[in-house]
């Protein structure tokens, strides 16, 4: 499913947070969203997922204006993984993943075979099947993140938004999760802090700076020395190999 945003504006009071952003994500693509702290990554992600209403502009998912799609119908196609969503409730891994079926169930409908199949597949995908009965509170940060992704997968979405899914994870789990997201057969839009990870796993990268879209393209086209200096205010060497669109960034200490 494609995601098309046109001239999105958003802000609170007089502060503009997202300014005139337009972008197109092709079906099946993994799009990386990068930018410094406070550049509007999370806000843009929420606008695209329909969790916030833009002040102006529109978002079309699969050719339909999401402002006109009811919340529940939208959630049957679009999943959103927040960063570090927590709870004090004593729920099991399975309970959490089952929540992903919420948009597919009416108030009193029973638990269908389709629901069960989606939950089983989602747990399997993040390799948490063996721990499905474990209490949420006893999971590590990486396991919680995987369970959140499983819950999003249980929604059987065609588009998935992830807000910094690799935060607080060790490098093994960072790579694990992004590889999984890349290999999923759906359109995903991922906000990321780690530029090398974005280069490694995204088909295209969007750079946000102070709410505006600064660059958009393949990793080698976007991740340039000049961009890193201007937007991220760091000195870095960018090494590319011929025929490889995935550059490697080496930051300089001084």
């Amino acid at each position: 499913m494609s995601v098309v945003a046109q001239n999105l504006h958003w802000g609170v009071r007089r502060k503009t947070i997202v300014s005139d952003v337009s972008l197109t994500v092709a079906p099946g693509e993994t799009l990386g969203l990068i930018g410094p702290n406070g550049s509007g990554k999370s806000s843009l992600l929420r606008l695209l997922a329909g969790l916030r209403k833009p002040l102006s502009g529109r978002v079309d998912i699969n050719g339909r204006d999401i402002a006109r799609v009811p919340r529940r119908a939208l959630s049957q196609q679009v999943a959103f993984v927040q960063q570090n969503a927590a709870t004090d409730t004593n729920v099991s891994v399975r309970d959490v993943v089952r929540l992903g079926r919420t948009p597919h169930r009416s108030a009193l409908s029973g638990w269908s075979e389709a629901d069960e199949a989606a939950v089983v597949a989602a747990l399997d995908c993040v390799d948490m099947t063996a721990r499905r009965a474990q209490a949420w509170q006893t999971l590590s940060g990486g396991e919680r993140q995987r369970v959140h992704i499983a819950r999003a997968l249980a929604q059987t979405p065609q588009v998935m938004f992830l807000d910094e899914p690799t935060n607080h994870l060790d490098i093994h789990h960072q790579i694990e999760i992004l590889r999984m997201v890349r290999d999923l057969d759906l359109t995903s839009i991922v906000a990321l802090h780690d530029l090398n990870l974005a280069a490694m796993f995204c088909n295209r990268i969007v750079v946000l700076d102070a709410g505006s879209l600064r660059a958009c393209g393949t990793p080698d086209a976007v991740l340039t020395k000049d961009m890193l200096r201007d937007v991220f205010r760091v000195a870095a060497d960018v090494s590319t190999r011929p025929g490889d669109a995935r550059p490697h960034i080496r930051f300089r200490a001084a």
Binding site: R71, R72, L74, S75, V78, A79, F80, Q82, A85, G100
Partner: peptide
């Protein structure tokens, strides 16, 4: 997992 999460579940 909070209001926004509920919204994303439809």
């Amino acid at each position: 997992f909070g209001d926004e999460d509920a919204a994303s579940l439809g």
